[in-house]
Simulated assay, not measured.
Amino acid sequence: MTIEQIAEIAQVSIATVSRVLNNQPHVRAEVRERVLAVMQEHHYTPQAAARTLAGQRPKVIAVFISETTATIFRNSTFSNLLQGMTEACNAKGYVLMVSLDSANRADDPATKLLHGRSVDGRIVIPNTINDPLLPQLIADRVPMVLVGKHPLLHHIVTVDIDHFAGSYQAVRHLLALGHESVGMIIGSLHAPASHDQIEGYQQAYREAGLPIHPALIVTGAESEHGGQSAIQQLLALQPRPTALFVSSAVMATGVLRTLHEAGLRIPDDMTVVCFDDVPTAASLNPSMTSLHQPMYDLGTTAANVLIEMIEGKTPSSENTILPISMIVRHENDECCDEEC
């Protein structure tokens, strides 16, 4: 549907439809209701050009992050992600609006504002595959990009990093060092990335011809306390693992603290690889081998793909996957396998 067709069906002028879209005055209540009813009936998604006819409203992209503000501001990966999105939007003349924490509460004022038709497109970063906001946003038919692959929503355009390859690369590296018992600490199984990370871990084990022990894979909250609780479970195993793969830097902080309190040295007593290459990974003594996530590039890619959709272009791919690289920092962690 176009703004002209809406005007024809509602039997009003194009200028009246534009005033309704921009919520301007001087439109009779009965006329406004008739225009809105036609839009709703025909699932009308206003194009950016049509919505700026009357007031030259800025082109707006809304970002929904279903995480608590405490988690977001403690995690540098989110700041890199948002920086990439912001700079990509600025370059194309779009304004980025962000909804933190309240994204799952439909009655929240910020969510109501961004959930309405006053935005040109949406980037959604869910923390679970059951995020209750997703069905509502999909029903609106406003252009949308999902950050993170969803196992059920195959028709949604997504941008993600290669969690499977990253996990596989890290565990394969640890096995190549001679470790046969590698513990894995990940977040909730409801997180979109967790299953890909487990698959990567298991694939590395299968290729090495080693048995997979489910007790070595432990889940926990995405927090320092969650990391502490998870490593305590692994340390209680007999025999305990000799190496660890931790899926997030915030969990790794709790893991390292617990290992230190237990008198275990890294990497002499326990080799640790972290999924996030945060600044602290290099500054630790000893420094920690980690996987570099291109979060800035993920942000720019998500924004640019969405802008293409808003402007009527078809994305080159419905599922864009960015690669991950591993940074080896322990001297005695040098892998003899050239493909590591």
Results as ranks from 00 to 15, higher is better:
Arg74Pro: 15
Lys92Ile: 07
Thr86Pro: 12
Leu189Phe: 14
His179Arg: 03
Asn130His: 10
Gly55Met: 14
Val272Leu: 12
Ala139Ser: 10
Ile14His: 07
Arg265Lys: 09
Phe275Pro: 02
Phe78Pro: 09
Pro58Phe: 04
Arg240Cys: 08
Gly187Gln: 13
Gln56Leu: 00
Ile156Ser: 04
Pro132Lys: 01
Pro109Met: 02
Glu199Lys: 09
Glu331Pro: 11
Leu53His: 03
Met184Gln: 15
Ala103Gln: 13
Val147Asp: 04
Asp131Cys: 04
His179Ile: 07
Phe78Ala: 13
Val12Ser: 10
Val119Thr: 08
Cys89Val: 13
Glu311Phe: 00
Met1Glu: 07
Ser248Tyr: 13
Asn332Met: 14
Met85Gly: 12
Arg105Ala: 13
Pro25Ala: 05
Leu298Lys: 03
Gln47Asp: 04
Leu113Asp: 05
Asp276Ser: 03
His43Val: 04
Ala191Glu: 06
Val218Glu: 06
Glu308Ile: 03
Asp107Phe: 15
Leu21Ile: 01
Val246Ile: 06
Gln293Phe: 05
Asp268Thr: 05
Pro132Asp: 04
Ala249Ile: 05
His154Glu: 14
Cys274Gly: 10
Thr219Arg: 02
Thr86Phe: 14
Val17Pro: 01
Pro25Asp: 03
Ile138Glu: 13
Glu30Asn: 12
Glu222Thr: 10
Val328Met: 12
His155Ser: 08
Gly209Leu: 02
Gln11Trp: 12
Asp297Pro: 14
Pro135Lys: 02
Gly227Ser: 01
Tyr205Ala: 12
Thr271Lys: 07
Glu222Arg: 13
Thr314Gln: 04
Tyr201Val: 10
Met1Pro: 05
Glu308Tyr: 05
Pro286Tyr: 02
Gly254Val: 06
Ser247Glu: 01
Pro58His: 08
Ala165Ser: 15
Leu306Ala: 01
Pro211Met: 10
Met85Gln: 11
Ile9Tyr: 11
Asn22Phe: 09
His42Gln: 00
Ile324Thr: 08
Asn75Phe: 08
Ser13Tyr: 08
Ser325Gly: 10
Ala29His: 15
Glu87Thr: 15
Ala215Glu: 06
Val12Trp: 11
Ser287Pro: 09
Ala282Pro: 03
Ile186Gly: 14
Asp196Tyr: 15
Leu256Ala: 13
Gln83Arg: 10
Arg19His: 07
Tyr296Asn: 10
Thr301Val: 03
Val278Asn: 11
Ala91Phe: 01
Glu338His: 15
Met251Tyr: 06
Ala106Asp: 13
Ile327Trp: 15
Ile186Glu: 10
Ser325Asn: 14
Tyr44Phe: 11
Arg32Lys: 01
Leu53Tyr: 02
Ile307Gln: 00
Ser283Gln: 03
Ser66Tyr: 07
Gly121His: 05
Arg172Tyr: 06
